[in-house]
């Protein structure tokens, strides 16, 4: 789906489209797409394209950095707070079970996924989101995007949340062995992709 840029002047529109054409890979990145959904961000890019000076270069760069910082922290905190709350409750129930005789059968109780992110951040909650808090290396990010959502989830819980494979499995309703398998394939795949990309970085 193309980025809506109808408020730009014909000249700006042309510059914007040309840039997009030349950077197709870039525009596949959901972060970039989401950044350019805002008309003032499109404007910053066209300003630079039409008059490429340092000020315009920096203005765009900074606006992006501001935006990305917000996205990162909101995403990170959403995950972290949710997880912290789940842990907190689990801990309390474990204690209650230990001290009280009847804790009540609370098995089948599921934790609804946190989906309403508010603002225009719906895409952030998408498990296939290529941003994990810890991936700073764009080459790795590229490889990460090629993983299946399931693989990304496992890696996320494992490394971003620091859970064990057993816990990860429980969240995803699979066995520890299942999680382990997904985990291994994903790592192997990442490694190979990275190697193909030109051997840089030993991670």
């Amino acid at each position: 789906m193309p980025i809506d840029n109808k408020h730009l002047s014909p000249q700006e529109k042309e510059a914007f489209n040309r840039f997009q054409q030349q950077h197709q890979l870039l525009f596949q990145n959901p972060l970039i797409r989401s950044f350019f959904k805002q008309s003032d961000h499109q404007k910053l890019l066209t300003n630079y394209l039409i008059q490429p000076d340092t000020a315009a270069w920096r203005a765009l760069d900074n606006a992006f950095r501001d935006y990305y910082t917000g996205v990162k922290i909101v995403h990170y905190l959403s995950q972290t707070l949710h997880w912290k709350a789940v842990q907190f409750d689990k801990q309390l129930r474990r204690e209650a079970e230990r001290f009280l005789l009847t804790a009540g059968e609370e098995e089948g109780r599921s934790y609804p996924e946190d989906t309403e992110a508010g603002e225009d951040l719906g895409w952030l909650e998408n498990p296939s989101l290529p941003l994990t808090e810890k991936i700073g290396d764009p080459a790795l990010l590229e490889c990460w995007k090629k993983l299946t959502p399931r693989q990304q989830q496992v890696l996320h819980y494992r490394y971003s949340e620091g859970l064990s494979l057993t816990e990860t499995g429980r969240i995803l309703h699979i066995t520890q062995q299942g999680a382990s398998k997904i985990h291994q394939t994903a790592l192997k795949q990442l490694k190979e992709e990275l190697k193909q990309k030109g051997g840089g970085g030993e991670k």
Binding site: L26, D61, N62, R65, K72, I73, P138, E142
Partner: peptide, 23 residues
């Protein structure tokens, strides 16, 4: 939340041209 904020390194967030270059 406050701990996470305190520990967040804003300088590590890449800018736009970094992404352009990498892709």
């Amino acid at each position: 939340t406050l701990t996470a904020i305190q520990e967040f390194d804003t300088r590590s967030v890449p800018g736009f041209w970094h992404f352009v270059q990498e892709t």
